[in-house]
Design a binder for these strands. Sequence first.
DNA 1: GTGGTCTAGACCACA
DNA 2: GTGGTCTAGACCACA
Lengths: 119, 119, 119, 119
Amino acid sequence: MIILDYKDTSPIYEQVVEKFKLLILKGVLQKDEQMPSVRSLAVELSINPNTIQKAYAELERQGYLYVVKGRGNFVADSSGLLDERKEEMKQKVIYLYREGRELGMTKTDFIECLQGIEE
Amino acid sequence: MIILDYKDTSPIYEQVVEKFKLLILKGVLQKDEQMPSVRSLAVELSINPNTIQKAYAELERQGYLYVVKGRGNFVADSSGLLDERKEEMKQKVIYLYREGRELGMTKTDFIECLQGIEE
Amino acid sequence: MIILDYKDTSPIYEQVVEKFKLLILKGVLQKDEQMPSVRSLAVELSINPNTIQKAYAELERQGYLYVVKGRGNFVADSSGLLDERKEEMKQKVIYLYREGRELGMTKTDFIECLQGIEE
Amino acid sequence: MIILDYKDTSPIYEQVVEKFKLLILKGVLQKDEQMPSVRSLAVELSINPNTIQKAYAELERQGYLYVVKGRGNFVADSSGLLDERKEEMKQKVIYLYREGRELGMTKTDFIECLQGIEE
DNA sequence: GTGGTCTAGACCACA
DNA sequence: GTGGTCTAGACCACA
């Protein structure tokens, strides 16, 4: 379902969080669908169950999952979260631009960079 | 000379590194200028000399400083490093764009975001 | 696993780095094998964990190790590093020869010296 | 008379020692010739007199200079030292070879490297 | 005075 | 348990 990148320096639980957020926002995982159990996912990814636990807790905290005690974790309604997420992306671009401006880069530098990206 | 942000979760030594890199790239600190001594900066920022030591070692490793034993740390010639750094910024924008595309964002979204930034 | 030479004037962390580089390049420590933990090695060699930490950080920087957060340090793929290292050795010989030439030594002096070494 | 290399990481006093050893062994500085005074050399090289002092002390210890109190430093008879020095060079080559052998290098590798050096 | 190394010991995030 | 960061404090070589 998700694949970890061990060369990535970010913590594994964070990678798990990010991968699932994307799957949920893209609709691959749909509202009220049951998430894989902590244990089964831990086995599948061969990582420590504590790590999955931490990831799920974080996803719940951010509103991507809801927990039904004794039953498991389920995908929450993420309709509002997508726009939130897009807004975050824009904030990051703005932050990046301000950093670049300190180094003498212009808006045009950034825009041309974006336009030059091959899909 | 530099100010630490204690709300920032990144390690102190890393903040020191980043702040000085910027000062050097912007030309506030010029080639062959002497850096504050490890000890004096430690006192000024009220942090342990070892932490400054680690930051300076990293700055040296990255080519921003050179050490003269028994004399101190000096600002290296960073002319080549600025372009390197700008390239890094562009890579970050590209990475950010690819992330956004997964959420359904377009180049235009990013470009309009940039154009809308007030200076 | 490794033995320190306290008569050696070079810093302990550097000795640790060099010893492990050799073990890795010689294949005594193999790809993806787990390194002794920072703490256990510190106990075994009776030196401070910080010193091991510094050595491991340097080994990682040079591509001999990779770190998996929370799990430990592991031996990286060093296949490319061996040739690099051999090249370094050759540079040292060349440097040594140039030094000797200043003293009136010839290539033949060096070659005969090498041929005379008993295995 | 001698030129320092500030990019060299070895201590300045050591550079001074090595440069003078070479000048003496090559006969540029001859037996009983007076060395430049500590102060004048310090000024000429714009370094700390302590550093020259330390270098001269080391040169005396190794038999390259002798001191006449109140008169200055003079070049010693270095006829025996040249052979000693050449022997040291050979020991270094042998040490280097043993290091290389650990990495799988052969005598032939070293010899070919030497033969390939352009004068 | 300057940087570099090292120790002892603490605390934290992560798995 | 694992590595990473940080402090307080000491000692050393070098200039």
